[in-house]
Design a protein around this nucleic acid. Sequence first.
DNA 1: CTAATCCTTCCCATAGTGGGAAGGTCAAGC
DNA 2: GCTTGACCTTCCCACTATGGGAAGGATTAG
Lengths: 140, 140
Amino acid sequence: MNIGNAADRSGVSAKMIRYYEEIGLITASRRANGYRDYDANDVSVLQFIRRTRDLGFSLDEVSNLLALWRDRKRPSRQVKKLASQHIEDLERRMREMRAVVRTLKTLADHCHGDERSDCPILEDFASAPAKKAARRHAHA
Amino acid sequence: MNIGNAADRSGVSAKMIRYYEEIGLITASRRANGYRDYDANDVSVLQFIRRTRDLGFSLDEVSNLLALWRDRKRPSRQVKKLASQHIEDLERRMREMRAVVRTLKTLADHCHGDERSDCPILEDFASAPAKKAARRHAHA
DNA sequence: CTAATCCTTCCCATAGTGGGAAGGTCAAGC
DNA sequence: GCTTGACCTTCCCACTATGGGAAGGATTAG
C-alpha cells in the first residue's frame, strides 16, 4: 500500500510518516519505482504512534514505548513505569498552570474591565517578582 | 547600562534581549562603540516581558500587552479581555491534560506492573480509536 | 601593555508539524 | 498511444522561543 493510503488508515499524515522514518522511529520497504510500501502491520505501528502522541508522549517516549511493544517478553513493570512518569509529568505541569490561572484570576478580579484606564493587571506585570515558575516544556 | 547589566537586573538573558529587539518587541539605543544602551525604563519593560512570559503568555500576546501598557488611556476592558482569554486557554488545556491523565491512570491501574509481560496499556495504545484530543499548542 | 571580560554579529540546534516546489510515476479516459 | 490528474519522490523553508558557540572588536583591571 502507498504512503497516502497508510496515512488515511492510520491518521498520521504522509509528511509525518516520512519524518518518523527519517528519525529512525519506523522503517519502510520500497517498491521498484521507489515508492514506499506499507502493509497492515505497518499501519498498526502508525496507529500506535498516533495514539501515544495523542496522549502527549514525546517522540522520544514513543520510541521507548514502541520498543517495549515490540519486545513481547519485557516485564509489564517497565511499561507501567513509563506511563506513571508521564502521568506525573502531566500533573506537575497542570499544577504549574493552575498556579498561573489563580494569579491571573486574582488580577482580573481586581480589574474593572470597563472604560476606565487604571488596571491592576498591567501594574502587577510591571512590578511583580517574577517567580520563575511554569517554564515551558515543548510538548503540550 | 550595558546589555549584561540589563540582563542581570531584569532576569532576561542578553541573548533574549537581542532577540526581542530583532523581532521588534523592544528597541535599544546604541552608544558610539556600537554597544546597546539601556536605562531604568528599559529594564522595567524587560521585567514586564519576563513576568508575562512566566505567566505563559506567548510573545505575540506579550506584544499586545506591552502595547496596552504603553497606551495609558486605553480602557481596562481590553486588558481584562486578554487576561481572560489566556485564562480560558489555560483551562482548556488543563481539561485536555486531565482527560489524558484519567485515561492513562485507568490503563496503569489495570497493568500488573510486575515481571509478567501482558500489559493492557500497550494493548490499548495499539488498538484504541485515537480521539484526536490534546493537540499540542507550542507554549506550555 | 596584557589579559580577562565584555560586547558585537552570525550560524546552528532543539521538537514537531506543515507548506510548497521541482520532478518522476501511474492509471484512466480518449 | 497520449494526455491529464492524482499520486509519489526529495529538498528546502517556516513556525515558537531559547540556548550554544565562534570570530572578532572594545573596554577595563592590574
